[in-house]
Design a protein around this nucleic acid. Structure first.
Lengths: 121, 121
DNA sequence: TATTGAGGTTTCCGTTTGGTAACCAGGAGT
DNA sequence: ACTCCTGGTTACCAAACGGAAACCTCAATA
């Protein structure tokens, strides 16, 4: 009797496709919103929460840590009282802004969610 | 005794933020790869599977349907035998290409996955 | 008659994701 | 002695997402 192939395969190394890989970082919830908020200058944690109301602190922290680790933004603790933390785009992060602008631009012309109620339907 | 707030809230209407909304469509698995594959001309279902080997038929179908519904691509059945189906970008879909190019461009310079093994580590 | 190829659909299932709520530390202000 | 503010962290949980495998129709071909 032939043995079945077991399906508990260990996760394979990512295919290192730059497109797939880059979408892995851009694609997280609220990631682009964070970059968008920072494009006009540095923001603190609580300011970002105001800019993007539905984001939870947990996710915002996660996104900021990821973006910092990838060199998109930098994190600076200011010796104020209470100490505040300022996030700002790096040069690399700045390069993402036009790309996101392009997406927003097209986004305006996309048809809405397919199952969303349409005017006059 | 005060009643607890129940958490079975019905899903709220999307905030209709063009950025968030557009990322909702771009962000699905393999979506950008599909657009990327179509940028050079029309492709059939099975050709797309060759272009993007790890995509499963289920997900590929889902992505094609979504992109069609939002006017990014069009689907044409050709009366060959067996009938074949050709997918091609619309003008709107074409506008996404430079945006994706920009992302890929920056993606090249992003640091890799934070917990990925680094050369000499 | 069986097989092949196109273009899917369906079911099942595990992992990942993100939301909620609660909690925490340290210093400043009242 | 409290309370507030900043900037988080943690545990828990439900839903969504995507992969695997099996199955399907129709026509042409071997």
């Amino acid at each position: 009797m032939p043995l079945k192939v077991r399906r508990n395969r260990s996760p394979q190394p990512p295919p290192s496709c730059p497109l797939t890989e880059c979408m892995g970082i851009i694609g997280g919830a609220w990631t682009v919103n964070v970059i968008w908020s920072l494009r006009a200058g540095p923001r603190r944690f609580s300011e970002l929460r105001v800019d993007i109301p539905p984001v939870s602190p947990k996710v915002l922290t996660a996104r900021l840590r990821e973006l910092e680790a990838r060199g998109v933004l930098r994190r600076e603790v200011k010796p104020t009282s209470p100490p505040s933390v300022e996030y700002s785009l790096t040069a690399l992060g700045g390069e993402l802004v036009p790309a996101i602008e392009a997406i927003v631009e097209v986004g305006h012309r996309l048809k809405g969610s397919p199952d969303a109620p349409v005017a006059n339907a």
